[in-house]
Simulated scan of single mutants.
Amino acid sequence: MIEAAMIWNEPNNKSHWDPEVDPDWRRFAEMAILAADAIGAENPAITRVLGGISPIDPGFMSRMRAFGVLDHVDAVAVHGFPLDWNLWQIHEWPQRIAEIQAVTDLPVWVSEVGISTFGAEEVQAWGLERSADLLIGRAPRIHWYSLYDLPRAWEATTRHREAEGSSYYRHFYMGLLREDDTPKPAFELFRRHAPQMGLVQWFHFEDHRLDQAVRRMKELGVRHLRTGLSWADSYRPGALAWFDRQMEALAEFEVTVTFCFTPEHRGLMPHHTSAPLVPDEFAGFCAEMIRRYAPPVVRLDAAAERRLAAV
């Protein structure tokens, strides 16, 4: 079920990692190495991916290489939103991937690419087709962000604030489906790209959309899904029951699971973006999740298979 484990999400974006607590990312690098090694120790077959960076910054990737992080992962990832937040145009996608390929020999995944319908739903439909043309064949894994719009009653996990207008509200309109489960024009267009492009869908704790999301992804023919398991949520009452339900529901997909979010009481600062007090604790959470949802497959030799068949 789990094909890959992603270590954090957008570590070079202050929406997800506090640069005031860790200004040179040294603490992040230590934590990422410990997590990668813990994942590999539990199941060497799992692809370990450095959390997708946003913005796409070869300087940050070079820093991770200098700290030794890239020696402990199997792939790196980037996120790009050129029609919404990035200061580059959509046709520059090949160039942006090449910038990262220039500083590492590891495969470069595009673990988030998406377009908001804040301005017009037709823009998303055009952008999906153009993104597919530019990315399919250039990245070994592509995940479109996202399946559902973010419910308006929730908050966006972002450094942007409501007072900033479009920069904030664009987060709420990234789905192929509206909040009420009705499809946007890009929904049907995505169907023909599903074999080559996966989806991203973050599920909040006890998310009411889980079952309908599974139905919709099967309808689209989705094979690859990226989602998350929150270290912070693991301290909630009933956390393991929710994690079990979520992962069981997603069992038919090839899942990239993203491990991230610091519990407030385990951070240097009481916030989910903080570096942890004890980096080994995050590594322990990653190991526990792999042990629970992606234990290694024991393959029997031919003689053992014959003995088992005879029982």
Rank of each mutant, 00 (worst) to 15 (best):
F81H: 09
R65F: 09
Y145V: 02
M31E: 12
G51Q: 06
S62D: 09
L83W: 11
M64H: 10
V103E: 06
W126D: 12
G119D: 15
V108K: 07
P94Q: 03
D133R: 04
Q89P: 02
A32K: 04
I56W: 00
I142A: 01
P94T: 00
H91R: 06
A125H: 07
E162H: 00
A35R: 00
L83Y: 13
G114K: 02
L150K: 05
E129L: 08
M61E: 15
H143T: 07
A45N: 11
G80H: 08
Q95V: 15
E30I: 10
V49I: 14
G127R: 02
D133Q: 14
G127F: 00
V110M: 07
F118N: 03
Q89G: 04
W93L: 11
R161W: 03
H91W: 11
E30Q: 06
I136W: 03
S131Y: 02
W85H: 08
Q101S: 12
A66Q: 14
A156K: 01
L147P: 00
Y168Q: 11
S166T: 08
A139S: 15
E99K: 11
S116E: 14
G165I: 03
A120R: 15
T117Y: 11
I136A: 00
G127W: 01
I97S: 08
Q124K: 01
W154L: 10
I90R: 05
P58D: 03
Y145G: 04
E92I: 01
I33E: 08
L70P: 01
P58N: 09
S166Q: 06
A66H: 13
T104S: 13
W109C: 06
A102Y: 10
P151G: 04
G127I: 00
I56S: 02
P55D: 08
Q89F: 06
L128N: 01
L128W: 02
A120E: 10
I100R: 15
Q95F: 07
L128D: 04
A75F: 07
E42H: 08
H171T: 03
I90V: 11
E155R: 05
T117I: 12
T104W: 14
I53G: 05
L134A: 12
G59W: 13
D74R: 11
T157A: 10
H160E: 06
E99M: 10
D84T: 10
I56T: 07
V123W: 12
I142Q: 01
G59L: 11
A77F: 11
P140C: 11
L70Y: 05
D84H: 09
W93K: 02
Q124L: 01
P55L: 03
D57T: 09
R63S: 15
E112T: 04
I39M: 15
Q101E: 14
T47R: 15
N43P: 14
Q101R: 15
S62P: 11
D84V: 07
A163S: 09
E164Q: 10
G119N: 13
R48P: 08
R65G: 09
Q124S: 03
A125Q: 14
V103P: 15
D74T: 08
E121G: 04
G68H: 07
L70R: 04
E164I: 02
E162Q: 11
W88M: 00
Q89E: 13
L50D: 06
L34S: 02
H91I: 02
